[in-house]
Write a protein that binds this DNA or RNA. Structure first.
Lengths: 345, 345
DNA sequence: CTGAAAGCGCTTACAG
DNA sequence: CTGAAAGCGCTTACAG
């Protein structure tokens, strides 16, 4: 079981009766013009026979390139940013890059050590993938290597970042309800300790205020289904009862749905419900399917990797910029025109 | 922005006025007895000043050890196996290992290429982390390197694997219902195309049969909340109506809960509901909190890494074995004694 | 106590 | 057309 020594270029050379350099030449497609056809065949055959594969570690040392990207991420209230990670992996992988994955629970020291380890390995680039939109103010520790931030932003604008337009998305969610005549709109949220929650709340407030409506009643708790359930019950027993609700988080929306049903009410007849997206693929899977403003995780991931690889390959100074991606709404069956089809006509 | 050349041991040596070897000695704690105190201080100071960090690529080439583990995983119906990946990362990281992450959507070719890439990088070990229990019959491609499988098993028993006792867990779930007097038990499942589903179904069947009960009615569809909803409605309209239900998947359980409420019924009064665990942290978060048989993801992850590291460090022949971890039940509020507290007394 | 050499596994100029 | 040498950045025997 202990690894038998893997064969090296020298082994291939010995078997083929040529020098190490010739092996390298042939295997890298530079045989023609340098070696006779017969020797080329011999090298190929020897390599095949020995199952020779170049040692990527040695290659990296020589080429000063590891073809490896460091991915710094962590679990938020909704777990890992799965769709982004998947998108990053697919895009980078298609370009021939491997990924070293650093799971860094919050804490600057932890981050710092993670990045140091990545730099020690001489990764070609670093990509920070945040599960929820936050400030990432420690970019100075990211070191002298191409880098990009997904779903987080450097307040000092020292590094390029790709972020979702949480504000616009949330405003869009509210607008959908406003357009359907709703004026009594409740808002379920978790504590506004992140940029994500802050922007989402602001977006809703802004849309309502723009429409001349008064500020919504905001209910706040943890990001759990239980919390959503409790908050929604509370909201639905307020006077006047809201006719619509924006949930800042998927799990809160699920809790709200359960609460509505528990109270003998129905979505959307008695309450229009729209949720923002945390990447859990949850709300769009419910019954009824909930209207959701989606975070474009996949698109952000692909674009980020493309930018990062470009920076790596040009190794020129890069313009630092912040790209904001729109969050489109998908309507589902959970919003209704106010008064239309109401159970109490 | 383009990386300024990172300083090397030679730079430190030059600055400190010693040789490269001395730098290595001092920085690796072998200064005493080899260098004068003054020179040692000079080396340390020079290293600090140049922010010197040894190049891990060069280190790997020399030591024939990369301190890197390859993690092969993919997304199942419930996404990535988040808890297992987190556990693997924490355990390996604490031991000083980095992780190269390979996201391999099904397909042997894809797997094969992923493993080849890992082997080219000379990872010290490979760990396969499956999102749902499956056979992993392609261990021959795993190559001559220490390896271990989590949540999947090699039918040829050529490699050690850590698996949850899905059969026992499912039987336990059924037993909880049986113990409470239930005899009309419905079973919601997805298609038994994986070992996971197969074992879970068998476990339930076995427990019922052991208790002298007839086989449960099995309802099958995709792993979506919608499917769970539809199946549960169907099940609840059967005659005789089941008094209890085992859901093979978390999302099916959520769908079932929504269906129960939609029909104006209640859990657990009208239906006792228990779910098996997919690692989504979903069912335990619902209202009411669903009884769940939990998969010990964290424990499996920690144990696997410990075994793998041991194999790496001893590099001796390892006994191939299959370790099965029990799946404990957490009761929640969704199961009730039959007839007790029934809404139709 | 200290420095020069060898070698990990490659590739790329460079002599012959 | 072919092989020997240099060098990527380290560490560890080995001479002095």
């Amino acid at each position: 079981m202990s690894a038998p020594r893997r064969s090296t270029a020298q082994d291939v050379a010995d078997l083929a009766g040529v020098s190490r350099s010739s092996v390298s030449l042939v295997l890298n497609g530079r045989g023609d013009g340098n070696l006779t056809a017969a020797k080329q065949v011999a090298v190929l055959e020897a390599a095949r026979q020995l199952k020779y594969r170049p040692n990527a570690v040695a290659l990296s040392l020589r080429s000063q390139r590891t073809w490896t990207l460091g991915v710094v991420t962590w679990r938020g209230a909704s777990g890992f940013p799965q769709e982004m990670l998947h998108g990053v992996w697919e895009t980078a992988s298609a370009a021939g890059y491997l990924m070293i994955f650093m799971d860094t629970p919050d804490g600057h020291d932890r981050d710092h050590r993670a990045v140091t380890a990545l730099l020690d390995r001489r990764v070609d680039g670093i990509i920070v993938v945040a599960p929820e939109l936050v400030d990432y103010p420690i970019t100075e520790i990211l070191g002298p290597v191409p880098k990009i931030l997904i779903n987080c932003a450097d307040p000092q604008h020292a590094v390029t970042s790709i972020v979702p337009d949480e504000f616009g998305g949330a405003a869009g969610a509210a607008q959908i309800l406003i357009d359907r005549g709703h004026t009594k709109i409740a808002l379920l949220s978790d504590a506004p300790s992140t940029t994500q929650v802050h922007d989402r709340l602001s977006g809703v407030h802004h849309a309502l205020s723009d429409a001349g409506l008064s500020a919504p009643r905001v209910y706040t708790a943890d990001v759990t289904v239980r919390a959503g359930y409790d908050l929604a019950r509370q909201a639905l027993q307020a006077d006047p009862r809201p006719t619509a609700m924006v949930c800042i988080r998927e799990r809160l929306a699920l809790g709200a749905l359960l609460a509505v049903q528990d109270l003998g009410l129905e979505v959307p007849t008695d309450l229009s419900l729209i949720s923002l997206d945390d990447g859990e693929r949850l709300t769009s899977d419910l019954v009824p399917e909930l209207a959701t403003v989606q975070r474009p995780d996949r698109a952000m991931a692909e674009h980020s990797v493309a930018l990062l690889l470009h920076e790596i390959n040009t190794s020129g100074d890069q313009d630092v910029r912040q790209l904001s991606f729109a969050c489109p709404a998908s309507l589902g069956a959970s919003v209704a025109e106010l008064g239309v089809g109401s159970s109490n006509p």
